[in-house]
Design a protein around this nucleic acid. Structure first.
Lengths: 194, 194
DNA sequence: CGTTGAGTTGAGCTCTGTCAATAGCTGTGG
DNA sequence: CCACAGCTATTGACAGAGCTCAACTCAACG
């Protein structure tokens, strides 16, 4: 565990190596991942600027190195260094944009759309509009928690997508066979037959 | 309309008077409200710092006065005025914290919990643990879009809460009769009988 | 008193979560 | 080199939350 939600924050962290998940837990123990952080990314900046506590939980997912920055140091630095402040504003703004999309997805889209959007987002190598392979960097169990669903439901939707001929799943490798159909699915233009 | 999502942003706005909703639309036209803004609040700051476009839509809900600030002016001001930058960082951080809660609610809680939490949040006057009245500042139709549900479902849950003796609903006035039960509901400790 | 928008109620259905059982891999140790 | 333990993943059966469509009620206001 890096930190628990609602606990006082003395500072924030930057990932040097490894992988950290930031997530929320329901009362029953279900988990929603807000963001996965990799090398170079800052974690837990929010309480540096507003409030005293972390808004969510953070946990390493593998052997991980972190740098810790006490909040007061950062605030001093920012006060003296306007361009650093602008960078931090950009970081928070990007995060806000992401969260906006996550809220939209959770509230307005059903799972097939979310999954299609995720796959397309991961495969940023549109070789023509041909077929490229996305290799998941997480297990399907973790992916289900990113998408806000259960492992079982994810498995079923992946199967339906395979049967529809949109993708081909081999372990963690997912080959995109029909990019345009996935795009239609992600937009909500089309629904996935059962 | 103040602005549409995915359109280029020339600057941002501050509400002087009135009320503005920031929201997302699904392909079918369903609406999720991200935030309601009132006097004094800034809208659309994200694209000033990251990306070029607005992440969501904004629309006035009544007669409204807005101030407009071109992005370049703001950036100049921030570069020269570190404490203004710190304030802006605080604004974005608070928003991020709110969005974190919204994501948690949408993904991990069911409607009765969300509604209970909303009512408790609105009634910041815990007179003893007695019964105080929350007067909705929006219609129930709008409230349903804040909570991420439909008008009909909201109506049903309000009824169930009334029948359980937790609240008493009279138009837009909602009297809290059993605060502790609402709190248990909001935490997910208890579920609402049908 | 009619019109309009807000709110309620009913019926049916779909998505998706849960429980439970099964299957497949992977790495460890005998 | 094989068997077993322990994940990871799949599949089936079932139930419940909540969405949609549609009809209906209600209050306010001219």
């Amino acid at each position: 565990m890096v930190f628990w939600q609602d606990t006082p924050a003395e500072g924030f962290y930057v990932v040097v190596s490894g992988k950290v998940k930031v997530f929320k837990l329901s009362f029953e123990g279900r988990e929603q991942i807000l963001h996965l952080f990799g090398p170079g990314e800052p974690i837990g900046e929010v309480p540096v600027f507003a409030g005293e506590t972390f808004p969510a939980n953070a946990q390493t997912m593998e052997a991980t190195e972190l740098l810790f920055f006490p909040r007061s140091k950062l605030r001093d630095l920012l006060a003296q260094n306007p361009s650093l402040a602008m960078n931090m504003l950009a970081v928070l703004s990007r995060r806000l944009r992401e969260f906006t999309r996550l809220i939209e997805d959770l509230s307005l889209k059903e799972l097939p759309s979310r999954l299609a959007a995720y796959l397309l987002h991961q495969s940023r190598t549109p070789s023509g509009d041909g077929c490229d392979v996305v290799t998941l960097d997480v297990t399907k169990g973790v992916l289900s928690k990113i998408l806000g669903t259960s492992q079982e439901t994810l498995s079923r939707v992946l199967k339906r997508m395979s049967e529809a001929g949109f993708i081909d799943v081999d372990r963690r490798d997912i080959r995109i066979l029909d990019r345009s159909s996935l795009e239609a699915l992600a937009e909500g233009l089309q629904s996935l037959e059962r």
